[in-house]
Write a protein that binds this DNA or RNA. Structure first.
Lengths: 173, 173
DNA sequence: AATTACATGTAATCCGTTACATGATTGA
DNA sequence: TCAATCATGTAACGGATTACATGTAATT
């Protein structure tokens, strides 16, 4: 959670950035995880916290990464990355395409493709904002993968749809 | 967990299939989730359970999907798929490429590419076994995505590596 | 008048993994 | 002899989400 290297922020601002910002395609977090995390980091001396009184607004707690925090972050970054975790309800469903009615299967696939298009449009928007090199890399990575996924599905959906049809015919016999 | 449509199985066999089988690229589960799940499904009447005594081996509990279970499965499959969940430690690290030493960054990227190659080789193995249409689709989907990811990284890694270098130079000034 | 944005936090809950407990058999 | 395979389960733990609690101010 050392995203504070991009600048000081409050818990609220971090949540907003993760929810709407360009990282939302890959990361997210809720208050329930952000505030306790900031508390722990403060206890460990990895971030410092300055209270800022505002008029007409609740008080803010501005968190800033400390030299020690930055050092710890750099050390953590250099460690081997743990494997990606990926869970897809859609692919699980495709595994059983022969149990679905052809129309239902096609609808699932259509929805999936629409979703990919939505995400691609969103990623294009992010790309137009000014990003640092790392962020631009991840956003373009996401773009490349969503494009590859959509292309694969378009080029291979007929295999599933034919199978769903075949299973229906077999059932009728 | 209605993977029992592919045939009856025991909890142990399900775990093995998920761990080593062609679905391991997308799904997995440990005993701690499989056995309770089977218990719940049995309570709900969605699967039946037959105890099978074996000599020289512990007893087995063979689970089989019931007509009611199959119906429930089909209904669940037709519901809209919930969005994929994806978490990548590697991409998170790339976000902060400018904090890493160039050599460390390159090592992370090299490891990542090696890992993609390993997974691709594994997926190729799975493809040579006999798969149903749904399974073949998902394995080829996985292949397409890992290939796209590896290609993207190979074609764009220099952007990150140049940035890491630039940050070093800036620091030295 | 109602909703959204601002702002921080806690508690309940869920979901899953890891580790533990048990125990025979087979192969290195 | 030591590890691995077969086989089923429970308990502890961890991480994260959801919902709750509180309150002002601006917007619709």
């Amino acid at each position: 959670m050392g995203l504070l290297t991009f600048g000081d922020a409050s818990g609220y601002e971090i949540q907003k950035q993760l929810k709407n910002g360009c990282f939302s395609a890959f990361f997210d977090a809720s208050y329930g995880s952000i505030y306790p995390a900031l508390g722990r980091l403060t206890d460990d001396g990895l971030v410092s916290c300055t209270e800022l009184a505002q008029d007409k607004r609740p008080d803010k707690k501005i968190y800033r990464i400390t030299p020690n925090g930055r050092l710890t972050l750099v050390r953590t970054l250099a460690e081997p990355a743990e494997p990606d975790r990926f869970r897809s309800d859609f692919l699980a469903k495709m595994l059983f395409c022969d149990l679905l009615l052809p129309a239902e299967l096609s609808k699932l696939i259509d929805r999936r493709l629409e979703r990919h298009e939505e995400i691609l449009a969103q990623l294009d928007e992010y790309m137009e904002t000014s990003l640092n090199v790392g962020a631009e890399f991840t956003v373009r990575y996401a773009r490349a993968l969503h494009e590859a996924a959509a292309r694969f599905i378009r080029e291979n959906r007929h295999l599933l749809e034919v199978e769903a049809l075949r299973a229906r015919v077999e059932l009728a016999e």
